[in-house]
């Protein structure tokens, strides 16, 4: 997306000139295509294998609980709230973990879902 570093213009009529004569037009066209491509609002993740899906969901869930428990332990260390900081933040961490899992699954499903615009096969009367 920056200026070409080789700023010597090739001689008009030479091979290199013919190859690059319409380069600007082509770049402009490519940029136009890119801008025209509707950027989906929903973030999408590439297709993942089942193994890494599982690892991803598991680590999202466990990480939130670890963070909750760690924060709760810290809160209890510095405030006279023992044992409630740990209990409350651990439960909140659990909730955050579930939220993480739901969000990650929604992302994965959005990535693998068939776009609605593709013509569906002739269907039975089930919808």
């Amino acid at each position: 997306m920056s200026e070409p570093r080789d700023d010597k213009r090739p001689e008009p009529g030479s091979d290199a000139h013919r190859a690059t004569a319409d380069l600007e037009a082509r770049i402009a066209r490519a940029r136009g295509q890119r801008a025209a491509e509707a950027v989906p609002e929903q973030t999408r993740t590439g297709d993942l294998s089942g193994l890494s899906r599982g690892f991803r969901l598991g680590s999202e869930f466990v990480a939130a609980i670890i963070v909750g428990a760690g924060l709760g332990y810290l809160v209890d260390m510095f405030l006279p709230t023992r044992p409630w900081g740990l209990v409350v933040l651990l439960l909140l961490g659990f909730a955050a973990g579930v939220v993480n899992v739901v969000r990650a699954t929604a992302q994965m499903n959005a990535a693998t879902a068939v776009p609605k615009t593709t013509p569906a096969l002739p269907d039975d009367e089930d919808d």
Partner: peptide
């Protein structure tokens, strides 16, 4: 909001744990 804060804070943890664990 507290749930979202924890969820946000858990991102670097899961981000790093997953790579390391695998």
């Amino acid at each position: 909001v507290p749930i979202e804060v924890l969820s946000f804070l858990s991102r670097p943890v899961s981000h790093s744990l997953r790579l390391w664990g695998n």
